[in-house]
């Protein structure tokens, strides 16, 4: 085979990362969990949240977003998928072999990010669809029914944006975790960093003013992609929030690549 007939080096690196992912039990387990746990969590929460709106009055709960609450588990699993893609190799020392095979280190990092993104995107979207389909009947049982809560139109823009956006958010977090783990080099540090920067702003916001800031300008903003209605406690537009989280992801990835090129690779 002549060098010209080989695939481009960038594609070779992606293929190599794909072989690693498919060949290791850990990542396959994580994919299985990503497909099931968010669905179970959504079902559990929704089945225990009765409607408080008086019958007949138009309700203001975001019933679609409520069925997708399992994303809180989904992003944690996505963080694990992204973090282990780099972290496992840092721990075993195999990262040296990866960088020896591909001395242009950004290719290794981007290939890992691509494989983590592709797998979490497909499974993340499937998982959010399943969450809705499983949780919505349970939600009806809790009193979220017409006329207060008419059935969502499954082909409307906001509904599809919430379902697909939940998968996209999972993907962003997997890539964010690839970036953060490349920077800190250890899974055990990276996962808490990713989860804390992502979820803590939303949990700690006590006043409306802080809530407004966290929904607009922290990594937590991305969850607004799930919003399908207008509510007084929704402070960021769906795409605004998503783009903010995407920006944090980009910054993490760029910082990771620039660091990876400059520093010495440590033996395990």
């Amino acid at each position: 085979m002549t060098p010209n007939s080989r695939p481009h080096p960038r594609l070779r690196t992606v293929r190599a990362e794909w072989i690693k992912t498919v060949g290791s039990r850990g990542t396959l387990t994580a994919m299985g969990l990503l497909a099931t746990l968010p669905v179970g969590f959504s079902a559990l929460v929704v089945a225990n949240t009765p409607s408080t709106d008086p019958p007949g009055a138009p309700g203001d709960d975001d019933i679609v977003a409520n069925t997708l609450v399992g994303v809180l588990i989904g992003v944690v699993i996505a963080a694990v998928v992204g973090a282990t893609a780099i972290g496992n190799e840092e721990r075993s020392g195999m990262i040296s072999t990866s960088y020896t095979a591909t001395p242009r280190r950004h290719r290794v990092i981007l290939a890992k990010a691509s494989v983590a993104a592709a797998s979490t995107l497909i499974i993340g979207i499937a998982s959010s669809w399943a969450s809705y389909l499983v949780a919505r009947p349970l939600q009806r049982g809790q009193g979220y029914v017409a006329p207060s809560y008419p059935e969502p139109d499954l082909f409307s823009g906001p509904f599809l944006r919430a379902i697909v956006g939940t998968g996209l958010l999972t993907t962003l977090i997997a890539v964010y975790a690839v970036g953060i783990t490349t920077i800190v080099r250890r899974t055990s540090i990276a996962i808490p960093v990713v989860v804390a920067t992502l979820l803590l702003p939303g949990l700690l916001a006590t006043s409306d003013r802080i809530q407004q800031f966290t929904q607009r300008w922290t990594p937590f903003a991305g969850f607004s992609i799930q919003h399908t209605v207008q509510r007084p406690d929704y402070f960021a537009g769906p795409w605004h929030g998503f783009v903010v989280t995407a920006a944090y992801t980009t910054v993490a990835l760029v910082a990771a690549i620039s660091l990876a090129h400059r520093r010495d690779i440590r033996p395990a």
Binding site: S24, N88, G93, T97
Partner: peptide, 9 residues
């Protein structure tokens, strides 16, 4: 370099 530096999985 280091024969043990392979992901054990």
């Amino acid at each position: 370099l280091d024969a043990t530096a392979v992901n054990p999985g």
